[in-house]
């Protein structure tokens, strides 16, 4: 198939505690974008297993592929794992 390459969507991620905002592509993990911008966040496994980077999302939509590092009830309470989540909109994260 010959599809026309769409320009990759890009969103902003605001970290409300450190008062920093970074740009994150739709293909990029939120943690990766934050680290690239020099924001220091807690993390260990970078694959959604350990839950070290668990953060509360204040607003926005994301696509997360975790491996057991977060429980459904935590997700319901508004938590997500930046290490294995890609943005689907602008995000605000309580970090």
């Amino acid at each position: 198939m010959n599809e026309t390459a769409e320009p990759t969507a890009s969103y902003t991620v605001e970290f409300t505690v450190s008062k920093r905002t970074v740009t994150c592509d739709a293909t990029q993990f939120v943690l990766t974008a934050a680290l690239a911008a020099g924001i220091r966040l807690p993390f260990t496994c970078r694959q959604g297993i350990c839950g070290t980077c668990k953060s509360r999302l204040i607003s926005g939509l994301y696509d997360m592929k975790h491996k057991g590092g977060i429980r459904p009830h935590e997700i319901e309470q508004g938590f997500f794992l930046p290490c294995c989540s890609k943005p689907l909109s602008d995000l605000a994260v309580e970090k």
């Binding site: 260990t44 496994c45 297993i49 350990c50 839950g51 070290t52 975790h66 057991g68 590092g69 977060i70 429980r71 009830h73 935590e74």
Partner: peptide, 14 residues
């Protein structure tokens, strides 16, 4: 408590 995986609080062995 309710956990996803069991994560050591020291060095995050999971």
């Amino acid at each position: 408590t309710n956990v996803g995986n069991l994560v050591c609080p020291y060095h995050q062995w999971t």
